Simulated assay, not measured.
Amino acid sequence: MFDRRSLLRTGSAATLGAIALTAVAGGTDLATAAANNPDLLGDPSQDPSEQYPFPKRLTHQERLHLKRFDELDFVVYSGQQWSRLGESHSDTIRVHWPDGHYTDGIDRHIEDLKAQFVWAPDTRISQHPIRIAKDNLTAVTGVSRGTFSRPMPDGQGGFIQPTGQKFAINMVTVGLWNKRGVMDEEFLFWDAQTFMQQIGVG
C-alpha cells in the first residue's frame, strides 16, 4: 500500500495513473475512492487556506519551471501584471483553450486574460494542489476564484448582467517550456458547465 497524498507531490509521471488504478482495482470510481479514503485529495476549491508543497526529486530546470508558474498565477495573473507575462510566456506562445480553439502570440493572450477581469475583477489563483514536472513539460492544477460582479460582454454587442455569485473552479494547465525557460505552448482545462452554473448563468 502506498501513501497517495505523498505520491501526488513526488512529481512522478505515473502518479495520477496509480491513483486511478487503485480506484479501479477497488471496484469504484475516483470520486467515491476520494470520499472513502482520507489519503486522497478532496476538492481543493473547498479549502482556500490549504497550501501544497513542491514535489521532491526535481531537477534544477523542473523546479525553476514550477516556481515560474507559481509566480505567473499567484502574482502576475492574479495581480494583472501583464507587462511581466513574458517572464513565463514566449512572444509566439500558442494557447489552447478548453473549448478547443487556440490563439497565437503573447499580445492576444494578454487581451484574453484581461477580458476575464472585466466582469470578475477579483479573479485570482492562490493554490496549486498538484505540480508535476518532467524535463520541459509541466502539469499544474489550480483553483480560480472570483465573483461575477460586473456586466459580462456576450460577444454579440450585449452584456450578461452580474449575478453577484462567487466561483471556485478547479483547472489544469499543461505547459511546454523552451530552453530560454518560457512556455512555447500552453493547454488550459476546466469544466465550463460547472463554471457557468457557479456564476448563475448555466
Rank of each mutant, 00 (worst) to 15 (best):
E111K: 12
D70I: 06
L72I: 09
L176G: 06
T103E: 12
S12N: 10
R68F: 02
Q61R: 12
H96I: 10
V24P: 03
A18V: 12
D43S: 09
K67V: 11
S90N: 03
T32Q: 02
N178V: 09
V95I: 11
T123H: 08
M171P: 01
G155P: 06
Q156Y: 12
V75L: 11
S149Q: 02
G27R: 02
L188S: 07
V118C: 11
R5C: 07
D184V: 10
I125E: 00
N178W: 07
F74S: 06
T10G: 07
D43Y: 08
G155S: 06
T103Q: 10
E87I: 00
A33F: 13
A25R: 13
N136S: 11
I93W: 02
R131W: 01
V76W: 03
F195C: 07
Q61W: 04
L8Y: 05
H101V: 14
S88H: 04
Q198L: 05
G79K: 08
L41H: 09
G42V: 08
M196Y: 13
G146L: 01
A34Y: 02
D135F: 06
H101Y: 15
I93R: 01
W82R: 05
P121M: 04
K166H: 09
W82S: 04
K67F: 05
A115M: 11
D154A: 02
F195P: 00
Q197D: 10
K179E: 15
R150L: 08
D191Y: 07
T22P: 10
S126A: 13
A14Y: 14
D112F: 13
T194P: 01
G146T: 01
A192R: 15
L64A: 15
V76N: 08
R94A: 14
F117Y: 09
R68Y: 00
A139G: 03
G100H: 05
S78I: 07
V182D: 00
W82M: 06
E62N: 05
F117L: 06
P129Q: 04
L64K: 14
R108F: 09
G11I: 03
P98M: 05
L7S: 05
G142F: 04
I125R: 04
E62H: 07
G175Q: 03
P53L: 04
P38H: 02
H128L: 15
W97F: 15
V118M: 12
S83C: 05
T59S: 11
T59W: 03
P129V: 02
F69Q: 04
V24Q: 12
L8M: 13
I169V: 12
Q80E: 09
T173F: 12
H109S: 13
Q197W: 03
G79N: 05
A133G: 02
I125C: 10
R84C: 06
K179I: 15
K179G: 14
R63Y: 07
P44F: 00
T123Y: 09
D91Q: 14
S90C: 02
K114S: 14
L85E: 06
G27N: 01
F2H: 14
P151M: 00
A168G: 06
E50P: 07
A20L: 15
R131G: 01
A25M: 10
K67Q: 14
P48R: 01
Y77W: 14
G142N: 07
